[in-house]
Write a protein that binds this DNA or RNA. Structure first.
Lengths: 364, 364
DNA sequence: ATTATCATTGAGACCGGTCTCAAGCAATAA
DNA sequence: TTATTGCTTGAGACCGGTCTCAATGATAAT
């Protein structure tokens, strides 16, 4: 490493104590703001501290107190503005409670997620907020919990891991979104999600290890069933992990002899790509294709037409998850809580009845 | 604080040493991966560590080494996707060099910026990356520098503070953007920026304490001068700090008896708001109004028409600034460097010649 | 066989705080 | 006046690592 800086010597309590002519313990008391000290001595120490420009070393402080004042956050993808807002909600809440935030990105990869958790534990964060990228391998999360550090799950629940969790009502939201489409007369609807699986072929829910996605698919299927759609007309597409993959999926979908008349996108990044492909192919929204997406991303308001969205209150989600964690950090003992934040659908202009005259036959 | 957790007791080197039947020093050597140890002992210690599930305490490690492995980043507003990309560039680069990132938001307020810097210094970050919110009060930055911790400025330079800096060629970019408009025949152009000032009235560059904004305005004015626009037809609008403020400014501008035929937005957040107001008023882009914005935000590609932008390579900016910092951290000693990353203009469909027949007279 | 050299290992100080416990001292009670 | 109590202050251990330096034992050189 061959570091050139010969260790930055900073002013310590001992220095201040010497300057003020008191013991280290006394100086520490006034500087650390604990214990009792006479007004006179306090003044002396403070003056000495100011004179020497003393800055407490939080690291050393954490060393003895066992508390670092840092909250570790692991999200799937910061570039996704949904997480951006959530992180902002977390940061604001944390800061006003006197905590700092270390952010890590898992790129939705379980190995990176594990590495991130390991690093954060090493840094002795006081607690963690994680959006688990999958529900199969959660040994690292169990371990956090076992180590006594509070953990709160964000956006995604883990069925057989009972820990504080904040999610949105994904299933209901997806169902409502789908119902808007079926009520409009759509009988062939695609649902496109980023979750991947070997072969990209959706077979059954057993494949889906991300709870939010799973719930959304459940809600989607429920609504389809209620409306009596043919199982073959519920087009669940996996693997929209990159813009290119999303574009390919969309292309394939629209090239079918019987293309869907409506698409639901699992997040706004996917929806943006879908929108681009759709427009490029000259397919009109909403005349030829209806589109609904999760997350009220800013771009959805400025397209023509603007896009109907499932509004997930991401900032509030972040706020809530941070509050839950901080309450635990302050010593609150209570059974794990699962908070479900309600979503709402903002209807804009991207949904209309299908033009298609020869609608696919229904089961009934 | 009344914390309930009675101090999480974790496995220490001493525990591992005992288990392996060696001294603390020896155990530390293999666990810390320094010094020399015989193969046999190394195996014993490693086995003991695994058995006890030893996790190094980075805090304690930082305590003695004086290095925390953390880079502190202070940006103006994480929600702004420009910073989002930059932060991602920083994080990726930092992580692959073995550093972590603590992120802080200044909300572009000098006091919050100072507080953030203080906290990060307290955490003993190894170095800092800051987007200074103004150039008047930089005592806290000077102090970082003086304390021996490397500091790199991001996106904004400080004229009389010679330190590593990474910016884009703001002045040139603004000039080119403006030239596109003047070449198209625009003779009355507005430039809208977030920087605020008492009265929101632009008087002269002396008011502008944010270097990037200052440079952009300079570039804008240069281009206007070259094209021979009347000074009164260069409409520099300050104070677009909130969506509402931006909307008000835009409204006022478009309500003039002689409204501008083109607008340049200083960032994509402002541009989004302008776009909304413009559309709501029924003003057509580009027929009635041309629009160019800084930052290639995703929404600019999906509007009708898509928006011409000054593409700032935010991710690369982040990468570059992190690399510069890390090189210093590794001990590289060299005079401060000022790196200017070139921008490019992506011409899309939001610029067209003004319809306006009775063009304002020119100076010439 | 004796001494010099080298590779390992162990003992203990140190980083900069917090915190326990005992000592000092003044004020109050007996 | 002496004992008791309470408030301040100081000494020093401790957190969990790193790192210096001396001690040890083995090997090579004379």
């Amino acid at each position: 490493m061959n570091s050139s800086n010969p260790r930055i010597h900073s002013v310590t309590v001992a220095d201040v104590a010497r300057e003020a002519g008191v013991s280290k313990a006394t100086a520490a008391r006034v500087l650390g703001n604990y214990g009792v000290v006479s007004a006179k001595i306090r003044g002396d120490v403070l003056a000495a501290a100011k004179q020497l420009d003393y800055r407490p070393n939080e690291l050393a402080r954490s060393m003895t107190t066992g508390r670092s004042g840092i909250i570790g956050v692991v999200v799937g993808d910061i570039e996704n503005s949904f997480f951006g807002y959530a992180v902002r909600g977390i940061s604001d809440t944390a800061r006003s409670a006197g905590f700092n935030v270390i952010l890590a990105n898992s790129s939705e990869q379980i190995e990176m997620e594990k590495a991130a958790v390991r690093v954060l534990i090493g840094k002795r964060v006081d607690g963690l907020i994680v959006t688990p990228s999958e529900s199969r391998d959660i040994s690292h999360l169990r371990e956090i919990h076992r180590s006594g550090r509070p953990l709160v799950l964000l956006d995604r629940a883990l069925p057989d891991f009972d820990v504080d969790t904040v999610t949105v009502d994904d299933s209901k939201a997806a169902q409502r979104a789908t119902e808007i489409l079926t009520a409009c007369g759509h009988r062939r609807i695609a649902y496109i999600t980023a979750v991947d699986f070997a072969g990209h072929e959706y077979k059954d829910l057993g494949q889906i290890y991300t709870s939010s996605v799973r719930e959304r698919i459940e809600g989607f299927m429920t609504a389809c069933d209620i409306a009596g759609l043919l199982p073959s007309d519920r087009l669940i597409m996996l693997g929209a992990t990159t813009p290119q993959a999303t574009a390919d999926i969309t292309d394939k979908l629209l090239s079918r002899s019987n293309p869907p008349t409506a698409i639901i996108a699992s997040d706004s990044v996917i929806a943006l790509e879908i929108f681009k492909v759709v427009r490029q192919r000259g397919v009109r929204i909403p005349e030829d294709l209806s589109l609904i997406t999760f997350h009220d991303a800013d771009w959805t308001t400025v397209t023509s037409p603007p896009i109907t969205v499932v509004d997930q209150p991401a900032y509030i989600l972040g706020q809530t998850v941070a509050e839950l964690l901080i309450r635990r950090l302050k010593g609150e003992a209570r059974p794990p809580e699962r908070i479900i934040v309600p979503t709402s659908i903002i209807e804009r202009g991207s949904v209309a009845p299908p033009l298609d005259q020869d609608k696919p036959r229904t089961r009934s």
